[in-house]
Design a protein around this nucleic acid. Structure first.
Lengths: 127, 127
DNA sequence: CTGATAGTTCAACATGCGTTGAATTATAGG
DNA sequence: CCTATAATTCAACGCATGTTGAACTATCAG
């Protein structure tokens, strides 16, 4: 079979989610989705200091979500881009894990197994 | 159009991700995907104290990801279930945001715009 | 009323992590 | 060499939040 990918284990998914759950990191990733970006370009767009950008990019890079490239003419410039393979795996893993059709309607094994009342009728924390 | 859902804004997606990025919370949610569960059942399965389960379930509930139901015969028992509508919205939002086809191949606007070398040839942090 | 059960709420603690400013590295140009 | 630039690394701070144990609610059974 072509393009086969082994199923992503939940722990890998959890690691990816932890990296992407940071708001500013998600915004950085969103900009990278729009094309290769250097540190300064991201900093200008998001009004963030370059060392902060570096910090967040390192997290994304450690998670394997983005790739790094240096300019051949002037090696001081570093370009970042989304790792497409990782993104495909992430997207597939998330879609499978949170697939609504995966929801099982089984009743709880404990408790008196009484009839359930609709969630609308429940007020738990609201005073 | 039937079943139309307005596009989920990125901030809502970030909020959901933040809630789901917690490993134990993700495991709780995974169990809920397998059917309605009460607090004690989740605690037994994950070897966690009931107050911790309560704490994490509250976060999932506040995020609108799970619904609460009380037993009609014995109101001491509380059952939790995945909110299917929220899950569908989450899944759609995530799939759209992290769609690999959304990646734009544009070149950086800053820097000398030099030719890019393949990421394989780059060693940044590894000594 | 009394005790047991299921669950939540509260207060205190611990720690992970985003943030900040300064120091450091690497490269380019003169 | 010497300075400027792009980016990273480091140390310190502060806050958010997961964890823990105890107190508290609510409900049911006798």
């Amino acid at each position: 079979m072509l393009n086969y990918q082994p199923p992503t284990d939940p722990e890998q998914l959890a690691r990816w989610l932890k990296v992407l759950a940071e708001p500013k990191r998600l915004r950085i990733f969103n900009l990278l989705m729009q094309g290769v970006q250097c540190n300064c370009e991201l900093g200008d767009a998001l009004q963030m200091a370059p060392n902060l950008i570096s910090h967040h990019l390192a997290k994304l890079r450690d998670a394997g979500l983005v790739d790094v490239t240096r300019d051949t003419r002037d090696a001081r410039w570093v370009y970042y881009a989304v790792n497409r393979a990782a993104l495909e795996q992430l997207n597939a893993a998330f879609g499978a894990f949170f697939d609504p059709n995966r929801i099982q309607p089984r009743h709880p094994a404990c408790g008196p197994q009484g009839n359930l009342i609709p969630p609308d009728a429940v007020t738990l924390a609201e005073p």
